[in-house]
Every structure is written in structure tokens, then in C-alpha cells.
């Protein structure tokens, strides 16, 4: 475990301690410190308040502050664990942790289930899937006839909704992604393996003695 000098408090003042965050995630302390460089950049891009608001989140992801989107809103809501309308550093690291290549399949499955359970009912319902499908078609300017969309939904629910109750529960989703592992492709960010090379400036701010880790 790295020893974290008190002088580092200045750098992380008001944010969770990187040694503690590293102990809770797949990241090393250095990787958490590198993520802090990314966090500082995003959280100061519109309002320099040490928190990421939705505009900053969308600006960082899509280089566009105003790009309102169903999916982006949903992901922001899942990162905003404390439901404050902003993302603090701890939640940012813990949420990104799910996308780490070494994160568990169970965590990835759980996050993707909550991602698609748009109304937070505890089920992925047909109407929600249709809404997401139409959002995707709008985004890619693809046109599909209504009956084609219904056919895709029929096939999807035929495969996933095993008890035929018209909605996909957590167990059905877990079984479905095991049969269709490509559905979790979005849940892994290879970049997270090299975060310290992407944001090397953390070295200048690092106060943690990695030797002791």
C-alpha cells in the first residue's frame, strides 16, 4: 500500500484519497493519480469547481457541449452515483473502473443492465429498447420501416425474454450476454490499461511512494 504524504492533501484536497480508491478498484495508485489529471481537465473545462457537470461530460466525450442524447444522459446518470447532478472524483474513478479490462464480467453485466433499464424499473422493457433503437437510427441517420423495427424487437425478446413476460430481468440479461458476449464490447475501454502514459503529468504531482505499494 502506498504511503500518501500529507503534502499530497493539497493536490487532492476535497477529493478521495488515491490510495483508498486504488484499493477499491482495478487501478494502481499511479493510475488513479493519472485519472485525476484527466478529471481535473474535464471538471475545469466549463466551470472550474472540481466536479464534472453534464455539459463538461458531453464536451469531454463528444467535443460538443450541447449534444443532448439519450445514451449520454443515461451514462452520466450512472456515473452520478450520489444523484447530485455532478460527478465527483471518487465516483468518476469507481464508475470508470467497471470499464477496465480487468473488471469482472458481473460488474460489466450489472452496469449494462442498469444502462438499458432507462426507467430504473428493475427490468429492460420493450418500449425502452424501442426508444433506444430509434435513438440509434436517428443518430446514424438510418431509416428502418416500423415493421422491421418490430421484427428486430420480436427476435430480441424471443431470444432474451425467456419467461415471456414482455420484459428482461437481471437473470435473463446475464444469461443473454453470456450467449452474446459481443453485447459487452462497449463495457471495456482498452485505454484504461495505459492511462499513466496517456496522462504522464501525474508524475509531477504524485506524492505517493509507490515503492511501499
Amino acid at each position: 500500500m502506498g504511503c500518501f504524504h500529507s503534502t499530497a492533501a493539497r493536490e487532492f484536497s476535497g477529493h478521495e484519497n488515491p490510495v483508498k480508491l486504488a484499493s477499491e478498484t482495478a487501478f494502481s495508485v499511479s493510475e488513479v493519480e493519472a485519472l485525476f489529471e484527466l478529471f481535473k481537465r474535464i471538471s475545469s473545462s466549463v466551470v472550474d469547481d472540481g466536479l464534472i457537470n453534464k455539459e463538461e461530460f458531453q464536451l469531454a466525450l463528444f467535443q460538443n457541449r450541447k449534444k443532448e442524447n439519450l445514451f449520454a444522459n443515461r451514462i452520466f446518470d450512472l456515473f452520478d452515483v450520489k444523484r447530485k447532478g455532478v460527478i465527483d472524483f471518487g465516483d468518476f474513478v469507481r464508475s470508470l473502473n467497471v470499464f477496465h479490462p480487468n473488471a469482472s464480467l458481473e460488474d460489466k453485466t450489472d452496469f449494462s443492465f442498469r444502462l438499458y433499464d432507462m426507467d430504473c424499473t428493475g427490468f429492460i422493457e420493450r418500449q425502452e429498447v424501442k426508444q433506444m433503437l430509434i435513438a440509434l437510427l436517428c443518430e446514424s441517420e438510418m431509416k428502418l420501416a416500423d415493421d422491421t423495427i418490430e421484427m428486430i424487437l420480436d427476435q430480441t425478446f424471443n431470444d432474451a425474454d425467456v419467461d415471456r413476460d414482455g420484459k428482461i430481468d437481471k437473470t435473463e440479461w446475464s444469461d443473454f450476454v453470456i450467449k452474446n458476449p459481443s453485447l459487452l464490447k462497449i463495457m471495456t475501454l482498452p485505454y484504461l490499461r495505459d492511462i499513466t502514459t496517456t496522462f504522464p503529468s501525474f508524475v509531477f504531482n504524485s506524492e505517493v511512494d509507490e515503492i511501499a505499494t
Partner: peptide, 29 residues
């Protein structure tokens, strides 16, 4: 002759193609 019924892609495979679900934008400086 086997039936050539077309394989219907499932909705989540399509949805997963959304660029709004790709967080790698964070790391592209």
C-alpha cells in the same frame, strides 16, 4: 436445401453501435 432465413440482428447489437456509448472520447486528447 436449407432454409435461407436471414439472421436478424438483435436490438442490443445495433444499440451498442451508438457512438454515444463509446467512452474512449475521454482519452482522445
Amino acid at each position: 436445401k436449407g432454409s435461407d432465413s436471414p439472421t436478424i440482428i438483435n436490438a442490443f447489437q445495433l444499440i451498442g453501435m451508438s457512438s454515444f456509448l463509446d467512452l474512449s472520447g475521454f482519452f482522445e486528447l
